Amino acid sequence: MTDRPKVRIDYCTQCQWLLRAGWMAQELLSTFGTDLGEVALVPGTGGIFTITCDDQLVWDRKRDGGFPDAARLKQLVRDVIDPGRALGHSDRKKPPAE
């Protein structure tokens, strides 16, 4: 057993969201590496696309409206596993619109 955080991505096979789920898993593993215990891809149906970190729901496609971009997802996971951690360019604020 590991004490490291676990991320679970439930995705809809009917909607063909495996590639999206896999890409998000890759982004998380590239950023957090061995700080994560696992990133699991869990097939489902019915339009599901949810991401949990240590059983805490961080993203729900239906609740949150679509899919997070990579930077937002990394921030959400970071906020659960290590809120003080800097994410470099993923934390940069966008300049205000003129």
Results as ranks from 00 to 15, higher is better:
Thr2Asn: 14
Thr2Cys: 07
Asp3Lys: 13
Asp3Val: 13
Asp3His: 15
Arg4Thr: 12
Arg4Lys: 15
Pro5Ile: 11
Pro5Lys: 15
Lys6Met: 08
Lys6Phe: 03
Val7Asn: 00
Val7Pro: 00
Arg8Gly: 08
Arg8Pro: 03
Ile9Cys: 02
Asp10Ser: 14
Cys12Gly: 07
Thr13His: 11
Gln14Pro: 02
Gln14Asp: 08
Gln14Lys: 10
Cys15Thr: 15
Trp17Leu: 07
Leu18Phe: 14
Leu19Met: 15
Leu19Ser: 15
Arg20Gly: 03
Ala21Asp: 04
Gly22Cys: 05
Gly22Thr: 13
Trp23Asp: 11
Met24Ser: 13
Met24Glu: 14
Ala25Pro: 00
Gln26Leu: 10
Glu27Met: 02
Leu28Pro: 01
Leu28Glu: 05
Leu29Trp: 04
Thr31Arg: 15
Thr31Ile: 11
Phe32Met: 11
Phe32Arg: 12
Thr34Ala: 13
Thr34Asp: 10
Thr34Glu: 09
Asp35Tyr: 03
Gly37Glu: 03
Gly37Ile: 00
Glu38Ile: 05
Val39Pro: 05
Val39Gly: 05
Ala40Ser: 11
Leu41Cys: 00
Leu41Asp: 03
Gly44Ile: 06
Thr45Gly: 04
Gly46Leu: 03
Gly47Trp: 08
Ile48Asn: 01
Phe49Trp: 05
Thr50Leu: 01
Thr50His: 07
Thr50Glu: 06
Ile51Met: 01
Thr52His: 09
Thr52Phe: 04
Cys53Arg: 08
Cys53Ile: 07
Asp54Thr: 12
Asp54Val: 08
Asp54His: 06
Asp54Trp: 10
Asp55Asn: 14
Gln56Tyr: 09
Gln56Ser: 11
Leu57Phe: 13
Leu57Asp: 02
Leu57Gly: 10
Trp59Met: 06
Asp60Arg: 09
Arg61Asn: 02
Arg61Ala: 05
Lys62Asn: 13
Arg63Val: 10
Gly65Glu: 07
Gly65Arg: 09
Gly66Arg: 08
Phe67His: 07
Pro68Tyr: 00
Pro68Asp: 00
Asp69Asn: 14
Asp69His: 12
Ala70Lys: 00
Ala71Ser: 14
Ala71Glu: 04
Ala71Asn: 12
Ala71Trp: 07
Leu73Ser: 00
Leu73Ile: 01
Leu73Phe: 00
Lys74Val: 12
Lys74Gln: 12
Gln75Ile: 09
Gln75Met: 09
Leu76Lys: 08
Leu76Val: 15
Val77Met: 07
Val77Ser: 02
Arg78Val: 14
Asp79Gln: 10
Val80Thr: 09
Ile81Cys: 02
Asp82Leu: 05
Asp82Lys: 11
Pro83Trp: 08
Arg85Pro: 02
Arg85Cys: 06
Arg85Ala: 11
Ala86Phe: 06
His89Ser: 13
Ser90Ala: 15
Ser90Gln: 13
Asp91Met: 08
Lys94Ala: 04
Lys94Ile: 06
Lys94Phe: 00
Pro95Tyr: 07
Pro96Phe: 03
Pro96Cys: 08
Ala97Cys: 08
Glu98Lys: 14
Glu98Tyr: 04
